[in-house]
Computed example of a mutant assay.
Amino acid sequence: MAKRAATRKQLLKEPDQFITFSGKLIAFGRSNFKIILIITGILLSLLLVLVTVRQISHRNENRASALVEQAVAKYSAALQDSNPQTAYDRIKTDFADIFDTYSSKNAAKVARIIYGDISYNAGDADTAITMYTHALNDFSQFPALKHIVLSGLGYAFALKAEYPRSIQYFEMISADKDNTMKSGALFNLAWLYEAAGEKEKGASMYKQLLTDFPESMYGDLVREKVSG
């Protein structure tokens, strides 16, 4: 037997589910108005903070990059009418300000490598080592940059005549699978071993360089040395 359709009177007596739910929601909103305002305010504040941090971070990164460019330009200009030591003295405060204000920015991280090179060229091996050591942590996951930093550390310790430490860093480059700056590392290891009195190891490095990188810029010089 077919079920009879509900009459209009019956329908009017049955509560509309949507209206009932809406009514409950409105009632909850009225009784918890302050709580809702607080929660909404917190969420909006968090969103505003995130947006602001991103904008500031981007703006600060640009400022840091601009300051690094200015410092490098100032250093280059100083080299035109002075020596590396004088040029170094002229830009010390510029780089110090960059590291103090924008230490975590990518531009400052790259600036540490640049300032390490500038320090090394001025004969300040200790500052160069400090900069390169910090940069090594910053770029440990980037082989090309990592090798540049390791090479810088090798040269800086060689400048202090601390040959075992210097050898340690060039060996890290030569043992890596990435060939970036590897020929230079082998060449440096050869003369460092010689300087440390280990002639056989030095000769071995020269031979490895010619075997692995026969067309390198060091090739003719090494061949002449080996044949002599």
Results as ranks from 00 to 15, higher is better:
residue 3 K to P: 00
residue 7 T to I: 02
residue 8 R to M: 09
residue 9 K to P: 02
residue 11 L to F: 07
residue 12 L to K: 15
residue 12 L to Y: 14
residue 15 P to H: 07
residue 15 P to Q: 13
residue 16 D to R: 09
residue 17 Q to L: 08
residue 19 I to T: 15
residue 19 I to D: 15
residue 24 K to H: 12
residue 28 F to V: 10
residue 28 F to M: 09
residue 29 G to L: 14
residue 30 R to V: 14
residue 32 N to M: 10
residue 33 F to H: 08
residue 34 K to W: 11
residue 36 I to N: 06
residue 37 L to H: 07
residue 41 G to T: 07
residue 44 L to K: 05
residue 44 L to V: 11
residue 45 S to Q: 12
residue 47 L to G: 15
residue 49 V to A: 15
residue 50 L to S: 15
residue 52 T to Y: 14
residue 52 T to R: 11
residue 52 T to S: 12
residue 55 Q to T: 13
residue 56 I to V: 15
residue 59 R to W: 14
residue 60 N to M: 11
residue 61 E to V: 03
residue 62 N to F: 06
residue 62 N to I: 06
residue 63 R to W: 08
residue 63 R to D: 10
residue 64 A to R: 04
residue 66 A to I: 06
residue 66 A to D: 09
residue 67 L to D: 11
residue 67 L to A: 13
residue 68 V to Q: 04
residue 68 V to I: 06
residue 70 Q to C: 05
residue 70 Q to Y: 13
residue 71 A to N: 06
residue 72 V to H: 07
residue 72 V to I: 15
residue 72 V to E: 10
residue 73 A to W: 08
residue 73 A to F: 13
residue 74 K to I: 04
residue 74 K to L: 08
residue 76 S to R: 15
residue 79 L to H: 09
residue 80 Q to A: 12
residue 80 Q to W: 05
residue 81 D to H: 15
residue 82 S to Q: 09
residue 83 N to P: 05
residue 87 A to F: 01
residue 87 A to P: 00
residue 87 A to T: 01
residue 93 T to W: 04
residue 95 F to L: 04
residue 95 F to A: 01
residue 96 A to S: 12
residue 99 F to I: 07
residue 106 N to H: 12
residue 108 A to R: 04
residue 108 A to N: 07
residue 110 V to N: 13
residue 113 I to D: 01
residue 116 G to E: 04
residue 121 N to V: 06
residue 122 A to R: 12
residue 125 A to I: 09
residue 125 A to M: 09
residue 128 A to M: 10
residue 132 Y to F: 15
residue 133 T to G: 03
residue 138 D to L: 04
residue 143 P to L: 05
residue 145 L to P: 00
residue 145 L to G: 00
residue 146 K to R: 15
residue 146 K to G: 01
residue 148 I to K: 11
residue 150 L to P: 00
residue 151 S to R: 03
residue 151 S to N: 08
residue 153 L to G: 02
residue 155 Y to G: 01
residue 155 Y to L: 10
residue 156 A to R: 01
residue 158 A to K: 01
residue 159 L to T: 04
residue 159 L to H: 10
residue 159 L to A: 14
residue 160 K to M: 12
residue 162 E to Y: 04
residue 164 P to G: 09
residue 164 P to I: 09
residue 164 P to Q: 12
residue 165 R to Y: 06
residue 165 R to G: 02
residue 166 S to I: 00
residue 167 I to K: 02
residue 167 I to Q: 03
residue 167 I to C: 02
residue 169 Y to C: 00
residue 172 M to L: 11
residue 173 I to N: 02
residue 174 S to E: 10
residue 176 D to E: 11
residue 178 D to W: 03
residue 181 M to C: 03
residue 184 G to Q: 14
residue 184 G to M: 09
residue 186 L to I: 01
residue 187 F to L: 03
residue 188 N to S: 12
residue 191 W to D: 08
residue 192 L to F: 08
residue 192 L to W: 05
residue 197 G to Q: 13
residue 198 E to M: 12
residue 199 K to Q: 14
residue 201 K to Q: 15
residue 201 K to R: 15
residue 205 M to H: 08
residue 205 M to L: 08
residue 206 Y to W: 14
residue 210 L to G: 00
residue 211 T to C: 02
residue 219 G to F: 01
residue 221 L to Q: 13
residue 223 R to D: 02
residue 224 E to A: 15
residue 224 E to K: 14
residue 224 E to T: 06
residue 224 E to H: 04
residue 227 S to I: 11
